[in-house]
């Protein structure tokens, strides 16, 4: 005797129900399938709006992390530490949120950062571009080059991962950077954030002089911040006086905080 379970119609019904459930991220179709839900889309823009809705006092305090790669536990600890510090106004991640560029790693990274009590911004790193990571970044965070003005300071985020674009000559997009730095009444200072520094092989060496020159063009860049090298260093390349700040990668269980006041800024290191 055939039981009800074995009837083809019943099996078909089960199959269809499972497929319906499957459309809600229960099943894996490919490591490269990008199917982000609303909270994982357009994250940078949403955080800009969140930041614009906040009031700032005299001192702006920014926490920097980056190169989180496969250091998800460390990233979670970092988030916990930042949430304990009410002085921090927002967080900047200097790139490499997805070690293999996998959509799932973007989701893991963002699931940690989205627990931050303050707004956060992510710049694109070279690892984030592998496979279809560039598309995952566009879906999750938005444009590779973007900027916003907060408290009369312009924050400029730029893709400097030239090698991932086969040194095509337009990464970094120096003309876009120049346009962003042209002085207006809306801002008095600018801070430029990117992942790969000009001294690295990942940065197109034929563009590094022009890049550095453009940063100094209007004498309004307070300092630049980058990651990629995982350690912390404050240095002055190209025999200039523009400050480059390399911030800690998450695996060192340390992060850098920069406090910016009207007349000066201070860089400190905090452990977690």
């Amino acid at each position: 005797m055939k039981t009800k379970m074995m009837q083809p119609k019943f099996m078909f019904f089960i199959f269809i129900s499972l497929i319906t459930v499957g459309c809600e991220n229960t099943f894996d179709y490919s490591p490269y399938a990008i199917d982000f839900s609303e909270e994982n889309r357009n994250v940078n823009q949403k955080n800009i709006e969140k930041l614009m809705a906040t009031e700032c006092d005299d001192t702006l305090t920014i926490a920097f992390t980056g190169d989180t790669h496969n250091f998800f536990d460390e990233t979670e600890l970092f988030v916990g530490k930042v949430n304990q510090n009410p002085a921090i106004d927002f967080v900047i991640h200097v790139g490499d949120i997805a070690d293999f560029g996998l959509p799932k790693q973007f989701l893991w990274g963002n699931s940690m950062l989205s627990k931050l009590a303050v707004p956060y911004f992510v710049v694109i790193g070279n690892h984030d571009l592998i496979g279809n990571g560039s598309e995952a970044y566009l879906e999750m965070f938005g444009a590779f080059d973007y900027s916003f003005i907060y408290n009369k300071i312009k924050f400029v985020f730029i893709n400097t991962n030239s090698l991932e674009f086969e040194y095509c000559g337009t990464v970094p997009d120096i003309r876009w950077l120049e346009g962003q730095l042209i002085p207006t009444e809306d801002f008095t200072k600018a801070i430029v954030i990117f992942h790969t520094p000009p001294s690295d092989i990942g940065f197109d060496a034929t563009l590094s002089d022009d890049f550095h020159h453009t940063l100094g063009l209007y004498h309004n860049v307070l300092f630049v911040v980058h990651g990629h090298l995982h350690h912390h260093e404050i240095y002055y390349p190209f025999e200039g006086n523009l400050t480059y700040v390399n911030v800690y990668g998450a695996e060192h269980n340390k992060f850098n905080v920069i406090q910016i006041s009207e007349s000066s800024y201070e860089i400190e290191t905090i452990g977690f």
């Binding site: 179709y29 490919s30 199917d35 598309e135």
Partner: peptide, 11 residues
């Protein structure tokens, strides 16, 4: 095959 209705790009 991964169709576009479950991924940004078909695969």
């Amino acid at each position: 095959y991964v169709p576009e209705f479950v991924s940004a790009d078909d695969l």
